[in-house]
Simulated assay, not measured.
Amino acid sequence: MFVLVNLKAYPCDPVAVAEAARTVADAHGVRIAVAPQAAHIDRVAATGVETWAQHVAPVDHGSHTGHALAEAVADAGATGTLLNHSERRLRLADVDGALDAAERAGLSTVVCANNPEQVAAAAALGPDAVAVEPPALIGGDVSVATADPGIVEGAVAAADAVDPDVAVYCGAGVSTGDDLAAAADLGAEGVLLASGVAKADDPTAALENLVSGV
């Protein structure tokens, strides 16, 4: 199982979370990545943890003030990027453009979607993975795998029907080892989470609890 921790814009110490993630990943042999703010990518990558960008723009080098250039985040140490998160929605054409930008920069990709229908559309664009995250459950205390297991199973089936090589992750409310185990049982190959680690008083303990479900 792949664990991707999105730090969003939470007031946490990105380096401390990254160090906790690296420690837990090394101790348990679990793949854990951290997606910090763009300005913190280099500091997080310096810890040795797998580092992702929260977004890249569908642009190439040029006159694009304020856009996150894929090559720039890769140069800072990111090896992957989230795209189309519920808090950073893109039009389908821009998702496609951002995937092209990520491929150009050698970044792995996860495209987020709200439901199985959107998962199918995202999978057709050829990302490395898609992640189903019902917006109503994001930031909550109940995992999507518990609150609506059918949406995870539906996402897995939808992606498989379009492109069996596209992995399926799930997110929204994921925070415990039981959540991770439930996601795996439903066919997900990874999970996205944020507040369960970024807002934790002890990120190491939170991640230890999470990977107990592997």
Rank of each mutant, 00 (worst) to 15 (best):
2 F>M: 12
3 V>R: 03
4 L>F: 15
5 V>C: 02
6 N>S: 10
9 A>R: 07
15 V>Q: 03
16 A>C: 06
22 R>G: 04
24 V>E: 06
25 A>W: 08
25 A>E: 10
27 A>Y: 10
28 H>V: 08
28 H>D: 10
30 V>Y: 10
30 V>D: 04
31 R>L: 10
34 V>E: 04
35 A>P: 13
36 P>G: 00
38 A>I: 13
38 A>S: 11
39 A>N: 10
40 H>K: 06
40 H>E: 15
43 R>N: 13
44 V>Y: 14
45 A>K: 00
46 A>P: 02
46 A>F: 03
46 A>W: 04
48 G>F: 14
50 E>N: 06
51 T>C: 13
51 T>I: 09
52 W>R: 08
52 W>C: 12
54 Q>N: 06
55 H>Q: 08
57 A>L: 09
57 A>Q: 08
57 A>I: 07
58 P>K: 00
64 H>T: 12
64 H>W: 15
64 H>E: 09
66 G>M: 09
68 A>C: 09
72 A>W: 14
72 A>L: 14
73 V>Y: 07
74 A>V: 12
74 A>H: 14
75 D>Q: 13
75 D>A: 15
80 G>S: 11
81 T>L: 01
81 T>N: 02
82 L>Q: 09
82 L>V: 12
83 L>W: 09
83 L>P: 06
83 L>Y: 11
84 N>E: 02
84 N>I: 01
85 H>L: 13
86 S>D: 14
89 R>N: 09
90 L>H: 13
91 R>T: 14
91 R>D: 14
92 L>V: 14
92 L>I: 12
94 D>Y: 03
94 D>F: 04
95 V>E: 07
96 D>K: 07
96 D>G: 02
97 G>A: 01
98 A>C: 02
98 A>E: 02
99 L>M: 06
99 L>E: 04
101 A>W: 13
103 E>W: 05
108 S>P: 00
109 T>V: 05
111 V>W: 00
113 A>H: 03
113 A>Q: 01
115 N>A: 02
119 V>P: 02
119 V>R: 00
122 A>P: 08
122 A>L: 04
123 A>S: 14
124 A>L: 10
125 L>F: 11
130 V>C: 01
132 V>D: 04
132 V>P: 05
133 E>W: 02
140 G>L: 11
141 D>T: 15
142 V>M: 05
143 S>Y: 04
143 S>C: 09
144 V>C: 06
144 V>L: 00
145 A>P: 09
146 T>G: 03
146 T>I: 08
147 A>Y: 02
147 A>W: 00
149 P>E: 04
152 V>A: 01
153 E>R: 15
155 A>L: 01
156 V>T: 08
156 V>F: 13
158 A>Q: 11
158 A>K: 02
158 A>L: 05
159 A>R: 01
160 D>M: 00
162 V>E: 01
163 D>P: 14
167 A>W: 13
169 Y>W: 15
171 G>I: 04
171 G>F: 14
173 G>K: 06
173 G>W: 15
175 S>M: 06
177 G>W: 14
179 D>I: 15
179 D>M: 13
181 A>D: 14
183 A>K: 01
183 A>F: 12
184 A>G: 06
189 E>A: 05
191 V>M: 05
194 A>M: 06
199 K>L: 15
199 K>V: 11
203 P>S: 03
204 T>M: 04
204 T>S: 09
205 A>I: 09
205 A>W: 10
206 A>I: 10
207 L>Y: 05
208 E>H: 08
212 S>Y: 11
213 G>Y: 07
